[in-house]
Amino acid sequence: MEDKEILHPQPAGEKLSRREIRVITLEENVLGENEKIADENKVLLQKKGIFSLNLISSSGSGKTTLLVETLRQLSGEIACAVIEGDQQTDNDARRIAETGVPVVQINTRSGCHLEALQVRRALEQLPLSNVRLLFIENVGNLVCPAEFELGESEKVVLMSITEGEDKPVKYPLAFHLASAVIFTKMDLLPYLRFDFDKCKEFVRKVNPHAPMIETSAFTPDGLTRWIEWLRAKIGSYESRIT
């Protein structure tokens, strides 16, 4: 756009002033500030040797239940910490705290996702020196959490089989970015008209590589594959950083 000269009327007796219309190119990332803090979080976690997972899913998929059972099974083996994100209440943090794992609750109030600065502040409250695995349980939402980097090592998406089969293609970015897709509530499959093969096809449309891991928090071996995946991830991460 060419600069245009505009003459602006001034109070009587004064000369007309001249200003130009200008186009200022910015190319500035709206989320730039968040990404800068997220990068700093990532460096901090790497320096501490902590592998971190950002758990993303719809509300009600069973994130907290899966997390509580996971922490019980990892107890004594892998030192964990948790950052909980919800709009309101500390209900989820209380459930985590019952496992003995250090946890910080972030209430986003009107926010629908966690942001890097909130995670930074939570990290300052956690005893990171003894932690090998950090779970960040994001606000229940498959849209914005995929956009806002927190500084985590990797993202995983949870999806319960009580949701629609086409969830992966309805929320493609979250599923595309996930290192693993965790199906929850598998014990309910016999009672549902859920086309599991179709759902897996939909996952593959947006993410050809992520392992799809079936879990049930309420059956004896329901977390076996998930725990194995976690152990392998931590082992691989710790090999890379040492």
């Binding site: 200003r19 219309i21 200008r22 186009v23 200022i24 190119t25 910015l26 190319e27 990332n29 709206v30």
Partner: peptide
């Protein structure tokens, strides 16, 4: 998600 440019005077 970019602020591409602004036009002003």
């Amino acid at each position: 998600m970019l602020v591409k440019s602004i036009i002003g005077e």
